[in-house]
Nucleic acid binder design. Structure first.
Lengths: 148, 148
DNA sequence: TTGCTCCTCACGTCACGTGAGGTGGC
DNA sequence: TTGCTCCTCACGTCACGTGAGGTGGC
């Protein structure tokens, strides 16, 4: 018996429903190499996915939607995420000197700060739109009150 | 001499630059009827735009970008905006009874509230992403401090 | 007059949608 | 075994990008 926990395997339609997209989109992302294609699957057989893949896809679609990224931009971002994950694993290894650990943290900080800047700008833009709508709403209420 | 203030007329390239898009996009929007085509222009002649058209286009692109709308959804939203503008003008006419004015305000409130709900949801999503990044940033700082 | 921007086709591209016809697994 | 979902082409669509070849206005 393997030590790894048996992972629930899902089919493409279930995954699509879970993350709010379509099977075609998932296949397309695999086709252009945005998502990894399972090495073992032979043509014609069903694709199977695990919980972690679902989570990564959900996260990718969230970033794409919220930041309005093209698939090429999304690809770059995901590559950055992967590099970050690799550094994270290196950080926690026992044989890594403190000097290297500091370097890893500095790179992580740089990465997160870049993302934060993008996201903050977006949030500010959406918040500005919200403020305008709230102001409109108040003007309507005021006019209503003034109709004696 | 006309009483209307002479409006600066702009060409499509200037308009595109002002609103952060391309001439092709503006032409395409006109082609599918999302933007009105000037009646008077004959084929082959330059398109000219006024400040108000620039402002409307800027607003439309902002909504499309921030809310992630398709052009069909944007079209519906712009139609709503136009209806709202018509009601606003009716509201300020002298011959409109108070009863009708209240009705207009109620419709405006309904419209603004629908928009607000959309925008608030988006803002919350972006803010949630921002919080996650801030938390990551803090974890990095903490790890750095713990490296004695 | 010379540049620059504009014009209209029209084909290309990105990111999928939508059948057509067929096979796979609970 | 029967349904359902899955599979692979492959063409269609949306929202433009990108020349090609030509004309217009400061």
């Amino acid at each position: 018996m393997s030590a790894t926990v048996a992972e629930a395997t899902l089919r493409i339609g279930e995954v699509a429903k879970l993350v709010g997209t379509t099977p075609r989109t998932i296949r397309y992302y695999e086709e252009i190499g945005l998502l990894p294609a399972a090495e073992t699957r032979e043509s014609g057989r069903h694709r199977v996915y695990g919980e972690d893949e679902v989570e990564r896809l959900r996260e990718a679609l969230r970033l794409k939607s919220l930041l309005g990224l093209s698939l090429e931009e999304l690809r770059e971002l995901l590559e950055g995420e992967e590099a970050r994950q690799a550094r994270r694993e290196e950080f926690w290894r026992d044989d890594v000197p403190v000097r290297r650990k500091r370097e890893i943290l500095a790179q992580g900080r740089e990465y997160v700060d870049r993302q934060l800047e993008l996201v903050r700008r977006r949030r500010e833009e959406v918040a500005a739109l919200e403020r305008e709508l709230v102001a409109q709403r108040k003007r309507i209420d005021k006019l209503d009150a003034e109709l004696s």
